[in-house]
Write a protein that binds this DNA or RNA. Structure first.
Length: 648
RNA sequence: GCCCGUGUAGCUCAGUUGGCCAGAGCAGGCGCCUUGUAAGCGUCAGGUCGUCGGUUCGAAUCCGACCUCGGGCUCCA
């Protein structure tokens, strides 16, 4: 046996090290900067502690803290420190699981006597955590048999349950139970890897306490969850906290109130918003734009009612599969009616109202259809989670050989519309056949291939979500990133074989035989209410000129300029601008300030010079003040901003 | 639905050993000021202190129930 090992690095180069070398040795041999930033190594594809000896001939990559994988390890280790602190401070506490999550981590606990954490407790825990980090305790990996593991965690029922279930993701696999020990008193069941020692941590913040069911199951105990965030540097932590503050400032619920756009009257009920005149105007502009694009793209407009007999939803399968999401039934004249949770059955009835020919396909039916879904009170959230949902809903009926092209053009259409709203960063998920599915596997494969092909053609980066499709169809979910990098699920496209079959849909083919059409469900905004909320946050309430309720405000410097100001208003209104005027009964500075707070895109100030020269002073929402702009020139400049962007 | 938190004027918030008529700023009405680019001055009005019940001589304040809203769990547009 040789006394050295040879390792292959990610760039393909080879490096020889003494036998028994670890990831830490390797990183140090490459450079001291790398050694400082290293948190783990990937050995032949498996993340491993820096302290583990490396096998000869392995392919090894060093994981550093400035990568998503590195931060994951950092956060996971910070979660362990949190658990150690809580167990120190709350004798008798039981700890459950504590994984890293996007931007942070959490840990679930059960406190003795069903007590809960308070805000003050968080401060104490934070202090204790910092002491543990300062002590620079090593993370030492241990391996035990299942029996030993159960003994080790004898007084920790949640850990025992994990070991008994042999859950590979949580440190128990193939009869081997792995754990990481920080001190004589603290050891946590865990697959690892971890940073070498707690001294590597420190840029974290505990954020909030929340209740969470054990295993997410509402029939099991409610645990106390502590959320935190952790980063590789002080700067990264502060950048994240700043982003959170920015997100708070953009909260559409707050802006909705400040800008007088909408509210949720308790008298109406949770999750049921009313749109005020300004919000209503923005929504109308969104909808008008959407309708115009749909008309151009060959859609036909339909309208359907809000209620239907139970028999319709029995036939469509909604009462079997979706009853939990539906409002309770109403009895009328011996029949039972339900508020509709989806528009599809009604669009199908329109398709079925007469015989269809292949010449009509693809038939694209579009409706802003308001549906009602019962959402439990705890899940409602502003406009992004409501009970009355207006979907920009479409059902496309097409022949089998039209499916691929239709999906491809549909995706292009989706992106074109979303881009108009300044959303340009797309990602998609392709959800494939779940274990429990209806229909024929061959059909699923064809539809899935068509969806994948559409994604390829559209050039949207996507991931495959294996087995995440609906029971009746594979689907594409389109996500976008907003102005501050948050990801939102937006559009959804589903290929449906089930409903055409349940309703026995047909068309007559060119060969004069009856064929069954395919059906595509798609919502583009998803829900108009939700999209409105997301847009409000994306723009931080500063809607672009074409969407602004008031596009231009004219302010006279003194009241003897009012006549001229009024004439400017008249001329701007004549070319279709939404313009108003606030009289000079307050200092100009204050009127400007109010206009800015209302986020009006253009403020025009007119005084002596302007009356004399037929000009205006232009104060844009962002940018400098410009004096002496001729009115005609301003109108010219507004040009294409007065209306929704027109597609080529 | 469950856990935690919250609820005082349209908005943001003061108001604890339980004690005279519950306060401020902003917003709103009225008046003065006649204003050149993010807060001029004065004045008036506005509150069943979330709701209901209890304790007390006395409750915004203490107790209970319910409701709203917020953060989570779960689900999803």
């Amino acid at each position: 046996m040789a006394d050295s090992i040879t390792l292959t690095l990610p760039d393909g180069s080879q490096r020889a090290l003494p036998l028994g070398s670890t990831g830490a040795t390797l990183a140090a041999s490459i450079g001291s900067g790398l050694a400082r930033a290293a948190v783990a190594v990937v050995v032949d594809g498996a993340e491993t502690d820096l302290t583990a000896p490396l096998p000869d001939g392995a392919a090894v990559a060093v994981v550093t803290t400035d990568t998503e994988d590195g931060r994951h390890i950092l956060r996971h280790s910070t979660a362990h420190v949190l658990a150690q602190a809580v167990l120190d401070l709350f004798p008798g506490a039981k700890f459950a699981i504590g994984p890293p999550i996007e931007n942070g981590f959490y840990y679930d606990f059960e406190l003795p006597d069903a007590t809960t954490f308070s805000e003050d407790d968080l401060v104490r825990i934070d202090t204790r955590m910092r002491a543990i980090i300062k002590a620079d305790q090593p993370f030492i990996r241990e391996e035990h048999t299942q029996g030993e593991g159960i003994e080790l965690f004898a007084d920790q029922p949640y850990k025992r349950e994990i070991i008994e279930r042999v859950d590979a993701a949580e440190g128990a696999v193939g009869g081997v139970v792995s754990a990481h020990r920080n001190s004589e008193h603290f050891v946590d069941l865990c697959r690892g890897p971890h940073v070498p020692s707690t001294g590597r941590l420190g840029h974290f913040k505990l954020q909030k306490v929340a209740g969470a069911y054990w295993r997410g199951d509402e029939n099991r105990p409610m645990l106390q969850r502590i959320y935190g965030t952790a980063w590789e540097s002080k700067a990264a932590l502060e950048a994240h906290l700043t982003m959170l503050e920015e997100a708070e400032k953009r909260d559409h619920r707050r802006l909705g109130l400040e800008l007088d756009l909408f509210h949720f009257p308790p008298e109406i009920g949770g999750g049921l918003p009313v749109f005020h005149p300004k919000g209503g105007l923005i929504r109308k502009l969104m909808e008008d734009y959407s309708r115009a694009e749909h008309q151009r793209a060959g859609y036909e407009f339909v309208y359907t009612p809000h209620l239907a007999r139970s028999t319709l939803f029995e036939k469509s399968g909604h009462l079997d599969w979706y009853a939990d999401g539906m409002y309770p039934p109403m009895e009328m004249e011996g029949a039972t009616y339900y508020p509709k949770p989806m528009n599809c059955p009604m669009h199908i009835l329109i398709y079925q109202s007469r015989q269809r020919s292949y010449r009509e396909l693809p038939l694209r039916l579009f409706e802003f259809g308001t549906v009602y879904r019962f959402e439990r009170s705890g899940v409602l959230h502003g406009l992004t989670r409501v009970r009355g949902i207006t979907q920009d809903d479409s059902h496309i009926f097409c022949a089998r050989d039209q499916l691929a092209d239709e999906l491809a053009s549909l995706l292009q259409f989706v992106m074109k519309v979303l881009r108009t709203f300044g959303l340009t960063d797309f990602e998609a998920e392709l959800a494939t056949r779940p274990e429990k599915f209806v229909g024929v596997a061959e059909e699923w494969d064809q539809a899935t291939a068509a969806l994948a092909d559409a994604l390829e053609r559209a050039g949207i980066p996507y991931v495959v979500a294996e087995g995440e499709g609906a029971f009746y169809a594979p689907k594409i979910d389109v996500h976008v990133r907003d102005a501050i990098g948050r990801r939102w699920q937006m559009s959804t496209l589903q290929v449906d074989f089930q409903l055409p079959q349940l309703f026995d849909l047909e068309y007559t083919s060119a060969e004069n035989v009856r064929e069954r059409p395919y059906m595509i469900h798609r919502a583009l905004f998803g829900s108009v209410e939700r999209f409105f909320g997301i847009l409000t946050e994306h723009y931080a309430g500063a809607f672009p000129t074409w969407l602004s309720p008031v596009q231009v405000r004219v302010l006279a410097v003194r009241d003897d300029h009012e006549d001229y100001a009024a004439s400017v208003v008249e001329r701007l209104a004549a070319v279709g601008l939404r313009v108003d005027r606030i009289e000079a009964d307050d200092k100009l500075g204050n009127r400007i300030r109010r206009a800015k707070l209302e986020k009006i895109p253009w403020v025009l100030v007119v005084g002596d010079d302007d009356v004399a020269g037929d000009t205006v002073g232009v104060n844009g929402r962002e940018g400098d003040v410009e004096r002496g702009v001729p009115v005609a020139a301003f109108i010219e400049r507004m040009g294409d901003q007065t209306a929704a962007p027109v597609s080529p």
